[in-house]
Simulated assay, not measured.
Amino acid sequence: MELMRCLFLHRSIHCKLCLFSILVFCQTGLSFGQIHPCESPTPSIINIDSDTDRDTAACDIDTNTVSSKTAPEEKVKMSSSLAIVPYDESSLPLFHKPVREFHIGRQKIVVKQNWKELGVAAVVWDAAAVLCEYLDQNQHLVDGRTIIELGAGSGIVGIIAAYLGGRVTITEREVAMGYLNSVVHDNIDVDKYNVSVTTLDWTSDLTEFPKPFQVILGADVIYIEETFDDLVKTFRHLSDEKTVIFISCKVRYERDSKFLEMMQKYFELKKVFNDKSRGILIYKAVKR
Rank of each mutant, 00 (worst) to 15 (best):
V111F: 06
V111P: 04
V111M: 02
K112Y: 03
N114R: 03
W115Y: 15
W115T: 04
W115C: 06
K116A: 13
L118Y: 14
L118H: 13
G119F: 03
G119C: 08
V120C: 08
A121H: 02
A121C: 08
A121I: 00
V123L: 01
V124P: 05
V124K: 02
D126S: 04
A127T: 14
A127V: 09
A127D: 09
A128Y: 03
A128M: 05
V130K: 08
V130F: 00
L131T: 02
C132D: 05
C132S: 07
C132Y: 00
E133K: 14
E133L: 14
Y134V: 12
Y134M: 09
L135E: 06
L135A: 09
N138K: 13
N138I: 09
Q139H: 10
Q139C: 06
Q139I: 13
Q139K: 15
H140G: 05
H140P: 00
L141I: 12
V142G: 01
D143N: 15
G144V: 13
G144C: 09
G144S: 10
G144E: 11
R145P: 01
R145E: 12
I147A: 04
I148K: 04
E149Q: 12
E149T: 11
E149M: 11
G151C: 14
G151S: 15
G151T: 10
A152H: 01
A152G: 13
A152M: 11
A152E: 07
G153H: 02
S154K: 08
G155F: 04
G155M: 08
G155Q: 04
G155I: 04
G155P: 03
I156K: 06
V157G: 08
G158Y: 03
G158Q: 09
I160R: 02
A161Y: 03
A162M: 10
A162W: 00
G166V: 07
G166P: 05
R167P: 04
R167V: 14
R167C: 14
V168A: 09
T169C: 15
T169S: 15
I170R: 04
E172M: 12
E172V: 11
E172H: 15
R173Y: 12
R173M: 15
R173P: 04
E174Q: 15
M177K: 06
M177T: 06
G178M: 11
G178D: 14
Y179S: 09
Y179N: 02
S182A: 14
V183A: 04
V183K: 00
V184P: 05
V184K: 05
V184H: 02
H185M: 14
N187Y: 07
